[in-house]
Simulated assay, not measured.
Amino acid sequence: MSTVVEELASGGVRLAVPLLLASSGELLSERAGVLNLSVEGMMLTGAFAGAAGALASGSAGVGVLAALAAGLLFAALQALLSVVLRADQIVTGITANALALGATTYGSRVLFGDGAADSVPGFDPVAVPVLHRVPVLGPALFEQTVLGYAAFAVAAALALGFSRRTGWGLAVDAIGEDSTTADRCGLPVRAVRFAAVLLTGAVSGLAGAQLALSEVHAFSDDLTGGIGYLAVVAVIAGRWRAWPTILACLFFGVAQSLQFAAPALGLHLSAPLLTTLPYVVALLAVSGLVGRSRAPSGLTTPFLRGN
């Protein structure tokens, strides 16, 4: 039984890592007032670019750089549409995801049509001495790949650097709550929002690289499988706060891992039920049944000086 529990914890953390990265960026973007439904597309593009870069160069490190560049380029397009041109954020996000799915599917046929996608160079787990022997949590937390450890560091840095106790965090919150008043106070609204979307793209590209280069060492059509949308759900379930969002990601990761570990634990739960569980939690979070929750007042509202 202890072995099963360790596998459940390890699987949960492993599945939560890309979700943790993507939701950290999405949280920052939404606090600044920009809803990034295109996180799914950013992750998928990052995964494809990471796999292509690693395969072409023979280096997983080059693949990570390619994934970051792809995520940034994708985010720049999203920021141009939603921040500069003030297009509808929901429509542009869904459209961008459809574009990413089509482009990566076509690219996969062209570049990986001969099965090369199944032999992409990647990262292997690196155990931290002593700590990886701690029961249950040791293998889950301290037998990650280098990219996995980097993901933990990035998520923690974003949570601390943009907390509501720092000047950066207060500025982001002010812009997300009332961009007009923030502008009158001298805050660069468009620049902050543009930067928030770019940062979301960078961490989402890294999340895609984590999937392709650390988890499966391959690329396949629709590799992300909706994780980007689940990142948005995690932000809602975390009530737009950093540490609750991180906990929501871990919970969702364990819920997904439970699909595979349930039979060994003697639990007979349907896979569709476990798949919908994160979305049920998000509905409870926004309904107020598990505490008060309020999205940033300026979320999805474009900024126009003079309004």
Rank of each mutant, 00 (worst) to 15 (best):
V4C: 02
E7D: 14
S10N: 14
P18D: 05
E26A: 14
L28E: 02
A32C: 11
L37R: 03
L37E: 08
E40M: 08
E40H: 06
S59G: 07
G63I: 08
A66R: 03
S82H: 04
V83P: 00
V84E: 13
A87K: 03
Q89V: 08
I90E: 11
G102R: 05
A103N: 12
S108Y: 10
S108T: 14
L111G: 06
F112D: 00
G113F: 12
G113Y: 10
A117V: 10
P121F: 07
F123V: 13
D124N: 12
P125E: 03
V126C: 08
A127K: 11
L137S: 01
T145R: 00
A159I: 13
R164E: 13
T166Q: 02
W168L: 15
W168H: 15
A171M: 12
I175Y: 00
I175A: 01
T180P: 04
D183C: 10
G186H: 07
L187H: 04
V192R: 00
G201A: 10
Q210T: 14
L211S: 06
S214E: 06
V216R: 01
V216M: 07
A218Y: 05
F219Y: 14
S220W: 14
T224C: 06
V232W: 01
P244H: 02
V254G: 00
Q256H: 12
S257G: 12
A261P: 08
L267N: 07
L269S: 01
S270M: 08
A295G: 11
P296I: 04
S297H: 07
G298L: 05
L299M: 11
F303L: 09
G306A: 10
G306R: 03
